[in-house]
Design a binder for these strands. Structure first.
Lengths: 124, 124
DNA sequence: CAAACCTTGACATTTCTGTGGTAAGGTATG
DNA sequence: CATACCTTACCACAGAAATGTCAAGGTTTG
């Protein structure tokens, strides 16, 4: 056996078999198949899965986001349109530090925390 | 009055006031504020909102995705890492057209349709 | 100053994403 | 050829994204 099958690959990469299929489906990894249709993971794919894991964790990204990045590099029209939108008229009236992003990211967490603290309100 | 306030802007752009605040929070639009804190929408901002709407619709994107695009151009480290991941080892064993994306996009719809057809199963 | 409009914050709903199962049916291999 | 593993398809569910709405409290302006 030269390449690993899905469960073996799962064990050595930390992804669940389910997610390995998901990653493939998202277009982030292409695999060879055995004659009977089994997914075959070679060293290159295994490595790629490990680095993918790191990449996602390091920047707190999701598979969907990487899928979007993929689209950006496979659809010139998309890339152009997005580029265009960001370039035309910075739409930045004053000089704003542009890191409202912080607060934005926090909103999500606040919502979660709030939800976690709420349960006993039903008793009131 | 030189600039529009949020409800006026909402009417002329098609966005709801709620979404206008959301868009701003997502870092996709920066606004001037009146002395009292009212958001002020000038011609540039209005135009930007309209093109944003088109952009999202045309490529079936979400605000979050544009936010990611924004991150890509504001965080060199991110862009480099993503770029790197896509460049190293195409991880493409054969020559695959790479547009599994089609089936991928369809999966979502299938799931929805399936869910819509299921309701009466509970009676069985 | 009162009516109309804005602000932020919190809660609710809907849809999608990320994940985990399970079922029905092929593939591999001792 | 039987056991173990794989495949696709479908159901389920928690969490995130996209939106709406309401409340409490400032701002604008006739």
């Amino acid at each position: 056996m030269e390449a690993l099958t899905i469960n073996e690959a799962a064990r050595t990469t930390g992804w669940s078999p389910r997610m390995l299929r998901y990653v493939e489906r998202a277009g982030l990894l292409e695999l060879r198949r055995s004659a009977g249709g089994y997914r075959l993971y070679g060293p290159a794919q295994l490595q790629r899965l490990r680095t993918l894991r790191e990449l996602l964790a390091r920047f707190d990204l999701g598979i969907a986001e990487l899928g979007f990045a993929r689209r950006l590099r496979n659809e010139p029209a998309l890339a152009a349109a997005v580029d265009d939108w960001f370039l035309t008229e910075p739409a930045r009236p004053q000089s704003v530090p542009a890191d409202d992003w912080l607060r934005w990211e926090q909103e999500k967490h606040q919502a979660l925390l709030a939800a976690a603290e709420t349960p006993q309100l039903e008793a009131a």
